[in-house]
């Protein structure tokens, strides 16, 4: 049994101007100890997918009734708010995007980690929790952790605060960590350190879901990738498949958009922009921007089907080929 099973997840924002579907029928699983990357442009529904798992989508966001999210086989959507609170930070932890604004400025670093353990009844007593918090801080690379335990967040740099947030996420030994753009707000050398740290701390049983628009981060960290476009899954594959043989035209474009260290090479851009709000194209969501679009792309909504290489892709181009191949074979 997979650790996390998400089926037909739909998250809608019901505003006065109409319903905006941020996540549209997304299904995926995460196995124990597995690291999965969720990639896509801003507004593709990556963060909302992560927040939906925690049921922390802010008003007016609603997870529809047909959705199903199961952790170790237990239906999370059936849990009460109190039950969810006891799962958050305890079984599913969250690493936020911006370390500078994510720590309570009027509480000490140590207290914020100890507090997480205290509310979940982790550790024998306060002293035990304090010792664990200090050793966690040391583990994530805070120098002189015991002495910096009582510092306030304003006395820590951005990279150190991200380390603190990782220590906080690890404090109750969660089975899944959802990291939302964990390196975006950091400078390049700090980014590399945080990536290594995330890889180290999740090398055992802890699964990791990395939400990012940086494919490089995925290549460094993850075993599997899910590409989201306009709230739908465009492609799922293992990491090698995504980089060596991307199937979906959107994935190909996304790869070409990533900057490489080549002088003077002009970066590819994808023409147009992703549909946002309640106005969505018919057929494939990507077809208005797709250079390989065919006539039927504007009519037929492609299903997510096996791509023959172990992954899945939602593109008529590929499913048709697959279909033809099967027909050709005797």
């Amino acid at each position: 049994m997979a650790l996390l099973e998400v089926e037909n997840l739909c998250t809608e924002f019901r505003t006065k101007d109409g319903t905006v579907t941020a996540v549209d029928d997304v299904s995926f699983t995460i196995d124990k100890g597995e690291r999965i990357g969720v990639v896509g442009e801003s507004g593709a529904g990556k963060s909302v997918t992560g927040l939906s798992i925690l049921q922390l989508v802010e008003y007016p966001g609603v997870i529809t009734d047909d959705s199903s999210i199961r952790l170790n086989g237990e239906d999370l959507l059936a849990k009460s708010e109190d039950e969810m609170a006891s799962i958050r930070g305890n079984e599913i932890a969250w690493i936020p995007q911006d370390p500078l604004s994510s720590l309570n400025p009027t509480s000490t670093i140590g207290e914020q980690i100890v507090e997480t353990m205290r509310i979940h009844g982790y550790g024998d007593d306060e002293n035990d929790r304090r010792q664990r918090a200090i050793s966690l801080l040391a583990d994530v690379g805070i120098p002189d952790a015991a002495n910096r335990f009582d510092d306030y967040p304003s006395e820590y740099s951005g990279g150190m605060r991200q380390r603190v947030l990782i220590a906080m996420a690890l404090s109750c030994e969660p089975s899944l960590i959802i990291a939302d753009e964990p390196t975006t707000a950091l400078d390049v050398s700090t980014q590399a350190q945080i990536v290594n740290l995330l890889r180290d701390v999740t090398s055992n049983d802890t699964a990791l879901m990395v939400i990012t628009h940086e494919l490089g981060l995925v290549a460094e960290l993850c075993e599997r990738v899910m590409v989201l476009y306009a709230g739908t899954v465009a492609e799922k594959s293992d990491v090698a498949g995504i980089f060596d043989d991307p199937k979906h035209p959107y994935t190909k474009n996304l790869l070409k958009c990533s900057p490489h260290l080549t002088m003077g090479e002009e970066l590819n851009t994808i023409p147009g922009s992703m549909p946002v709000g309640s106005e969505r194209p018919s057929g494939c969501q990507f077809h208005p921007r797709c250079s390989e679009a065919m006539e039927e792309c504007s009519v037929v909504e492609p299903e997510l089907l096996p791509d023959g290489d172990g992954g899945e892709v939602a593109c008529l181009l590929h499913t048709d080929q697959e279909y033809n191949m099967k027909v050709d074979q005797p």
Binding site: L54, L56, E81, D82, A85, S86, I87, R88, G89, N90, A93, W94, P96, Q97, D98, S101, S102, L103, N104, P105, E115, T116, I119, H120, L165, M168, A169
Partner: peptide
């Protein structure tokens, strides 16, 4: 609307706290 309030909820703090 501060991010750290969101983080506090995500680490499991009950709404009263």
């Amino acid at each position: 609307s501060e991010e750290y309030v969101h983080v506090a909820r995500a680490k499991g703090l009950p709404e009263k706290m």
